[in-house]
């Protein structure tokens, strides 16, 4: 009985050492990776060629990126930093111009690249297009609900996205440029 009473206190002095050891192990192996990126929804694959839908030219915003990473928007060379504003203007069409989209929900962005296009350039273009939509959604959220788009409920977001749907259609890439 006396022996048991003696041993019921564990020496916790080495606890810190053990904890330190584990701590150092995790410190060394830790890579705080922030996995972030541009979220994209790919179209469903189908073996048959997609049915050709006649679209009015004014509703299509064609963006081409060639193998030299140059940008051609609706037949005109454009710099990457102009793309966002141009896209926004096309979607909203504030001046009701004849050559821009009829309504935001009829606007379609057509993105085409070459197999020789650098991925960096492609992603930059995609990012700008997405940024244009994000800014429009944010504007719309402020106007309609007086709140930031991020703080809206799911239904409110869906309403906004129904008004300004993000449609980026990607065509089969050309293969003029050199791949590596």
């Amino acid at each position: 009985m006396a022996g048991r009473r003696l041993s019921n206190e564990i020496n916790a002095g080495s606890m810190a050492d053990i904890a330190f050891l584990l701590l150092i192990f995790f410190l060394v192996t830790t890579t705080i990776v922030e996995d972030k990126g541009v979220l994209v929804k790919l179209p469903i694959w189908s073996e048959e060629p997609p049915e050709t839908k006649r679209l009015k030219t004014r509703n299509v915003f064609s963006v081409l990126v060639n193998a030299q990473n140059e940008l051609l928007v609706r037949g005109e060379p454009v710099r990457i930093d102009e793309l966002r504003e141009k896209t926004k203007e096309f979607i909203v069409n504030p001046q009701k111009r004849e050559d821009l989209s009829e309504r935001p929900n009829m606007a379609i962005i057509s993105l085409k690249n070459d197999r020789g296009t650098k991925y960096k350039a492609y992603l930059e273009v995609y990012n700008e297009l997405k940024a244009a939509y994000n800014e429009l959604w944010e504007d719309s959220a402020q106007r309609q609900f007086g709140r930031s788009y991020e703080n809206l409920t799911t239904t409110q977001r869906r309403d906004i996205r129904a008004d300004i749907p993000l449609v980026i259609s990607e065509a089969e890439p050309t293969s003029f440029g050199e791949e590596d």
Binding site: D35, K41, Y126
Partner: peptide, 16 residues
């Protein structure tokens, strides 16, 4: 990308 579409894996995140 084509293979991902064929696999029905449509949600894609281009890491950046």
């Amino acid at each position: 990308k084509i293979e991902l579409r064929k696999a029905g894996q449509l949600k894609v995140n281009y890491s950046a």
